[in-house]
Simulated scan of single mutants.
Amino acid sequence: MSKDSKIYIAGHRGMVGSAIWRQLKAIGYTNLVGKTSKELDLRSQAEVISFFKEEKPEVVIDAAARVGGILANNDFPYQFLMENMQIQNNLIDTALQAGVEKFIFLGSSCIYPKLAPQPLKEDCLLTDSLEPTNEWYAIAKISGVKSCEAIRKQFDKDYVSLMPTNLYGTHDNFDLKTSHVLPAMIRKFHEAKLNNHAPVNLWGSGTPMREFLFVDDMAAAVVFALENKLPEHLYNIGTGEDLTIKALAETIQEVVGHTGAIVWDSSKPDGTPRKLMDISKMHELGWKHQVDLTTGIRKTYNWFLENIEEIKEVKM
C-alpha cells in the first residue's frame, strides 16, 4: 500500500468515516476519495457503478450505514434491513467487478447472538438467535460479512470485516431519537445541567454491561488492516473491558458536571444483558486501543460543546 493509492472511504462524513479520513491524512495518504449522500446515493446500484468507473478506486473502506439506537431500529425495521443491504451490496459487488483487491467492511458487535458466551468470539457468529431490538441492522451486517468471506474464499481477494464494539467520539450523533446510549447520555446530562441540574431519566435498569471504543482507536484499527494483509476474514475491534450502563451514566454525569438525580425507567428495554468483545486476534496481530473511557468521554463532551450550535436533529 503506497501513500498515493486511491482510497475510497464510503461514509466519510460520518463519525467513523471522518475519523478514518483524518487519520489517513495525518500519516501522509494523499489520494482519498469521498462523496456525500447527495453526490452519490449508495442505495442506487447504477450510481455506484458509474462512480467506480469514473474514480477507479484501488481500495474501498465501507464506513457507510444507516445507524441508530434501540428506538430507531424498532421503529424503522425495513429501512435498517433494506438500506444497509443496498449500500453494502452495491459497494461490495461493484468493487469485486471493478477488480478492487482490498476492501474493508465495517460492521457491529450486534451481529453476534444475544446470549452468546462472553466475551464474544468471532466464531460464535450464526450460532444462536439475535437480540430482537436490533436484529434488522444485524442481519444486514451479517450478510456483508458473509459476502466478504465468500469473495475471499472464491476469488482470493483481501476483503476483510472489522466488527467494532460500541463506538463513540467526536462527530457523533447526539439526536435523542436516533443516537446511541453514550452520546444520548451526554446530551441529556448537559441539558439537565443547564436546567438547574434537573433529574435525568434513563432507559432500563442500568444493569446491562457494555464496552465502548473511542472512534480514533477504531480508525487506527482500519489503518492497521489497510497496511497489513490480515490472515482471516473477520476481526473484533474493542477494548476488552466493559462496565454497567449505570457506571457509564455516573462517569458521564461527572464529566459533564451534572449534580442532579438519575432516574431509571425499568419499563423500557435493557437490550442484550452483556456484550464484551474477545479482541485477542487483533492483539496477537499487533493492534491495541489507546484511549481510556473517561478520556474519550471528555474529548467527546468538549467536541459537543464546541459544536453545539451545529448539532441538528436527524429526521427519520
Rank of each mutant, 00 (worst) to 15 (best):
S5V: 11
I9A: 03
V16Y: 05
V16Q: 08
G17E: 05
S18A: 04
A19T: 07
I20E: 04
K25H: 01
T30L: 05
L32R: 06
K35Q: 00
S37D: 13
S37P: 09
D41A: 09
D41T: 07
S44M: 05
S50D: 04
F52T: 00
E54C: 04
V59S: 00
R66L: 11
G69E: 02
N74E: 14
F76I: 05
F76Q: 09
Y78M: 14
Y78D: 10
Y78P: 05
M82Q: 15
M82K: 15
N89M: 10
A95C: 01
A98E: 13
K102N: 10
K102Y: 05
F105C: 10
G107D: 12
C110Y: 14
P113R: 08
P117Q: 11
P117R: 09
E122K: 12
L125Y: 01
L130A: 08
P132E: 06
N134W: 15
N134F: 14
E135A: 15
G144D: 03
K146F: 09
C148Y: 09
A150K: 14
R152N: 01
K157A: 07
T165W: 08
N166S: 15
Y168P: 11
F174G: 03
K177G: 11
S179P: 09
V181K: 03
L194N: 14
L194T: 10
L202D: 06
M209P: 02
R210C: 06
R210I: 01
V215H: 00
D217A: 12
L226V: 01
L234A: 13
T239G: 06
E241T: 11
I245N: 03
E254P: 05
E254V: 02
T259C: 11
D265T: 12
P269D: 06
G286C: 05
D292E: 15
D292S: 12
T294D: 12
T295L: 09
G296N: 01
N302V: 05
E313L: 08
V314E: 15
K315H: 15
M316S: 15
